[in-house]
Amino acid sequence: MITVSVFRFPSDTAASDAAREIDAVDAARNNENVSVKIDNHPDAHSHWRPTVPSMASTSAHGPFVINIYTEQRSPDQHSLSDSIEKVLDKQIPRLDEFSPTPVDKMNDLVADPDDLLTRVVMQYPAPIGTPDVNDAVVYTDRGYLLLAGAKSETSQRFEKTGVDAVAMLQGSILARTRDDEAAKTYVDDIVAANLDRNSESTPPSGVPDVKCISLTNPSPLDEKPYNCIVRYRRFVVVVNSAQEVDVQQKAAAQYALLANSQ
Rank of each mutant, 00 (worst) to 15 (best):
E153A: 02
K184C: 04
K151Q: 15
Y232G: 02
K160L: 12
L147T: 02
Q123F: 01
G129Q: 06
R142M: 05
E153Y: 14
I173R: 15
T177A: 12
L109V: 12
T154M: 14
V210Q: 02
E200R: 13
T154A: 11
I173T: 14
L169C: 04
D132E: 10
D112T: 06
V166F: 10
A192S: 09
N217F: 06
K211T: 09
I128N: 12
D196S: 13
N217T: 12
G143K: 07
Y144W: 15
Q123D: 13
L221Y: 07
D196F: 14
P127S: 10
N198P: 00
F235T: 05
S199N: 11
Y226L: 05
D209C: 00
G129R: 09
R231V: 01
P204R: 07
E159W: 11
T202Y: 00
K160W: 06
L221Q: 13
T216M: 09
L215C: 03
L215M: 12
M168S: 15
E181M: 03
K151V: 03
P125N: 07
S214D: 04
P203C: 10
A111N: 05
Q123R: 14
P131R: 12
L215H: 01
D164N: 09
A148G: 12
D188S: 13
V191H: 02
Y232N: 10
A175L: 05
C228D: 01
I229R: 04
A111T: 02
N134P: 00
R231C: 02
V133R: 15
T202D: 06
A150F: 14
V236D: 08
P131E: 10
P127W: 07
L215A: 06
P225Q: 09
P220R: 12
Y226A: 02
S214W: 00
I229F: 11
T177L: 05
G171D: 08
D164Q: 03
K151C: 04
I128M: 10
D209F: 01
D179N: 15
I173K: 15
A148S: 15
L174E: 04
M122K: 13
A126S: 13
V207F: 05
I128W: 02
I173C: 06
G162M: 02
V120N: 03
A193T: 07
E159D: 13
Y124E: 11
V138L: 08
Q123S: 15
D112I: 02
D222H: 10
